[in-house]
Design a protein around this nucleic acid. Structure first.
Lengths: 216, 216
DNA sequence: CGCAGGTTTGAGCACCCTCAACGAATGTGG
DNA sequence: CCACATTCGTTGAGGGTGCTCAAACCTGCG
């Protein structure tokens, strides 16, 4: 199976790259571009000469294996900058999870002081990747889900009600689990009264301390 | 169990921070410092205001969980720069795997053009972390070990004989496996004639293509 | 109301971990 | 130089966590 064939097996994928790019004013523009749910922002193998900032909505960045396995390396929420991928070509796919607005940032190679702005952003990405690494390498299913809920809550201002823009499949592919395991862990957390599920993609953290203890 | 107690449970740890620092000329010096095998270079919680370059030897960077679990986030071999950890305090431990020479690089906050030098190094670290993430999230034991051997070979110039400075325990904690599983996979690779083991920490890649196919 | 996609729940199994014993290599002291 | 201790690595048996396969259940939407 080629990568492209495998690509089609992901059910919620619609387009390899977003058609909206065609109607974008001009590269380097600071105008936000609208990306419909499921549409691609960039693809593995494409040239990478820009950065992207989420204006509203959410983005998933992932790698696809030849046999269809998928690993999401990061979610990007409102305000966050992404698109760093060393070298000059992308090694990951980026897609809008839901209806999303993206602001493009040109990365002209040697603009004065550009590296000073980029370095902190790159370092935050590095720190996130390192934390994620620990989770994938040494935590069990319950710990992963608990850590994910805490992370999402904190990235949304620490509120007790967390709105998840992504599907269970996305969560599973982010945490290195299966959708069934994610669902089972959430059910068990609900049974224990640690969380409640007001809606499918809305989670209320009832006992944050218990969740914190699990995530460690 | 406190982190400090857990710290003691790691058998091959000798000192929290290397005594050699005391005898180092002055911070910011470009003189290499010798670190004996197993000695610490920096510790979780310490202030981080320097970068480090491996002159010879090898370094492991890891996080310790309260219950003793360990995840090595990266190995650093000769020539590589490490020590990036966002914020101002370290969130990981760094130790010499074997007798190692370290060159310290001062990171004065706003030296002109410093970010231009640092950004490529940070981006390489980010790329490595992202690749490692895929491995930990979606690959099975055999794939992880195969990928590790390929990675080590390529980082040592692509030679067929790979010298591993680290123990099986280190490999296991890097790959998110147990030492027994690592050992079993290596034995199976040897039985299949894909590798041979001239010495305990020396591995010869006999069928590189087969190894590549497994790692994918 | 019926369909489709997403989610939940269950039963069985596979892979990897745990526990344990053995073997090999290295260093130390007699 | 050898006996011994210690650490590291290998191999085996058994068990548990999470995956696979499958079916039922929502929920939004035409």
């Amino acid at each position: 199976m080629t990568l492209h064939e495998a690509f089609r097996t992901i059910p919620d994928h619609r387009q390899p790259t977003c058609a909206a790019w065609a109607s974008a004013p001009s590269p380097g523009s600071l105008q936000p571009v609208f990306i419909p749910a499921g549409a691609g922002i960039y693809a593995q193998g494409e040239k990478s000469d820009r950065l992207y900032q989420v204006e509203f909505g959410a983005v998933r960045v992932y790698r696809l294996f030849a046999d269809g396995r998928r690993q999401i390396s990061a979610f990007h929420l409102c305000g966050e900058v992404f698109g760093f991928e060393a070298h000059s070509t992308h090694h990951f796919f980026a897609e809008a999870i839901c209806a999303t607005g993206i602001r493009m940032l040109r990365t002209s190679p040697h603009r004065n002081g550009l590296a000073d702005e980029l370095l902190p952003v790159a370092l935050q990405g590095l720190a996130r990747a390192q934390e994620h690494l620990l989770l994938l390498g040494r935590q069990n299913a319950a710990e992963r889900v608990a850590a994910f809920l805490i992370e999402m809550s904190e990235r949304q201002g620490g509120l007790d009600t967390v709105e998840l823009p992504m599907s269970r499949t996305d969560i599973a592919d982010y945490l290195g689990l299966t959708i069934e395991t994610v669902s089972r862990v959430l059910s068990r957390l609900r049974q224990k009264g640690i969380i409640s599920l007001p809606a499918l993609r809305s989670i209320e953290i009832v006992k944050r301390s218990a969740l914190r203890d699990m995530a460690a």
